[in-house]
Write a protein that binds this DNA or RNA. Structure first.
Length: 466
RNA sequence: GGCCCGGUGGCAGAGUGGUUAUGCAGGGGCCUGCAAAGCCUCGUACGUCGGUUCGAUUCCGGCCCGGGCCUCCA
């Protein structure tokens, strides 16, 4: 099935035509590790995780290379370390680990490669030197700047022209810039700031060069998909594109694109405004997890809207997502004893995801499968639908938990299983004795403990935590 | 100021030039000792004003409203 993806560069859906179907290559901008990931940061991770799963299904598990970097040198890191009086290494290591834990909790697979900026300083220096040699960059007062006027195509991705950038500038132009639109590739470090020796003195890279250097190193100078949040379109991706194209070793100036398709997910919003650290209107994945919101609930919420649309994560939405997952797991729990049949993924599921990752449509398919499963009577039909639901869920990174664990897993402060089972036994005895008042009393007690009972036709009683 | 997105039923959220999105919540029914779960069923939505069309929520234009970007940001 042909995969169509909305390309920020062309502003339309373009068919994905990998340069090498045996090695489909995707680069997604990862975190700058100075603080916990908020829900907005988690969105691209989940979105591109679904794309990664789709690509692996389409081209084969061994034929997709997914790179997501860790930016561990950046001025915000320096500032955060200073503010907390914590060594930079400790801060970045701790934050990276928390990031890994949080992203695993929301069901994301690990990328094929996760390069760190600080491991690629020589490559960044080499790329910067090449840009100077080619007249696309110049050194000034310990800085190296990319010369925007040297690249006529600059601004194509963000659809901003140089004059507009200058007119709309919100910051003062540094005096060493030849052109107000020029941006930093390398900047000097004071003795207390992290720095590396370079032809321009001890310093550190600018914000954009690490992705150019690392993508070229791992994926090569031309690859298939480059992704990130919409807020990276400008300046980060525009500048990255400029550097990468101008520094290409193979076929320089050939007009060959750096990445064929640029994808950008929409913002997570709060009360209609973009969630961001600078506005302070964010909550972290970790906070939600600690409040008892399950990772899968957060994941479903992030997939509940199309990835390019704004997404408001509210308490109400999280409650609804939990209810939706309960519906799936109840359906799966009812066929727990049905052997899993190995079936092809539903075509309409693949069609939905192949159409620019239409996850709401894919979720509708999932719900239809659950309804069909609930209605199925024949064992073969149950097995087929169970397999289809689990397979389709796997493509979205959902429904992979054991229903028993989903419903009966430990609840902090809740009744333990033995206690619940003993009360259920007492209730069954009361029902057998037609003492329904007692049976209902026990059930009401359990409901107060957030335990829901479900009497089965065979006389047994199943339960789940609400 | 320039450039982008959006405005769909109570809520969330896809989509389409004419025919059911889907889910949550709600009403009715079946099932059940009663529930739960499930099944059946109901509500008749597309900001606004024009235009194109046999027919527009869907295409075009104006307007109103909301959000974003214009070198911190996923």
């Amino acid at each position: 099935m042909s995969i169509q993806l909305y390309n920020t560069l062309s502003r339309r859906k373009d068919p994905l035509a990998p340069r090498d179907p045996k090695n489909v290559r995707m680069y997604v901008c990862g975190p700058t590790v100075y603080d916990f990931a908020h829900v907005g940061n988690a969105r691209p991770v989940v979105v591109f995780d679904v794309l990664y799963r789709l690509l692996r299904h389409e081209f084969g598990e061994d034929h997709v290379t997914y790179v997501r970097n860790i930016t561990d040198v950046e001025d915000k890191i320096i500032a955060a370390a200073k503010e907390r009086d914590e060594p930079i290494d400790g801060l970045t290591a701790r934050t990276t680990q928390a990031y890994h834990e949080d992203m695993a909790a929301i069901g994301t697979m690990e990328p094929t490669h996760e390069p760190r900026a600080t491991d690629h300083i020589p490559q960044m220096i080499a790329m910067t030197e090449r840009l100077i040699e080619r007249g696309h960059a110049y050194a000034a007062e310990g800085h190296v700047l990319f010369s925007v006027p040297s690249m006529p195509e600059y601004g194509r991705l963000s659809r901003l022209n140089r004059q507009e950038l200058i007119d709309g500038a919100r910051v003062d132009v540094a005096p060493y810039k030849r052109d107000p639109a020029d941006f930093v590739l390398w900047k000097p470090s004071t003795p207390e700031q992290p720095g590396w020796d370079s032809p321009w003195g001890r310093g550190r890279p600018g914000w954009h060069i690490e992705c150019s250097a690392m993508s070229a190193e791992i994926l090569g100078e031309h690859f298939d998909i480059h992704g990130g949040g919409q807020d990276l379109i400008f300046p980060h991706h525009e500048n990255e594109l400029a550097q990468s194209v101008c520094a290409q070793m193979t076929a320089p100036d050939s007009g060959q694109p750096f990445a064929n398709i640029w994808m950008h997910n929409g913002y997570v919003v709060a009360n209609g405004e973009k969630m961001s650290k600078s506005l302070g209107n964010f909550f972290t994945v970790r906070q939600l997890l600690e409040e008892g919101v399950r990772g899968e609930v957060i994941r479903l919420a992030l997939l509940s809207a199309h990835y390019r649309q704004p997404l408001d994560i509210t308490r109400e939405k999280l409650v609804e997502m939990k209810a939706q997952l309960d519906r799936f797991y109840i359906a799966l729990g009812h066929v727990a004893d049905v052997p899993l049949s190995d079936v092809a993924l539903p075509e309409d599921m693949l069609a939905a995801l192949s159409d620019d990752l239409n996850t709401p449509e894919a979720l509708a398919v999932l719900h239809e499968l659950a309804s069909d499963l609930n209605k199925a009577a024949a064992p073969a039909e149950k097995a087929r639908l169970k397999g289809a639901l689990l397979g389709a869920g796997q493509l979205l990174g959902l429904l992979q938990a054991d229903p028993e664990v989903w419903f009966k897993g430990t609840a902090a402060g809740g009744l333990d299983e033995a206690e619940i089972e003993s009360r259920i036994a007492a209730r069954i005895a009361a029902r057998k004795a037609k003492d329904f008042a007692e049976a209902d009393r026990i059930r009401d007690e359990l409901v107060a403990e957030r335990i829901i009972l479900e009497d089965r036709p065979d006389g047994t009683t199943d339960w789940r935590r609400k």
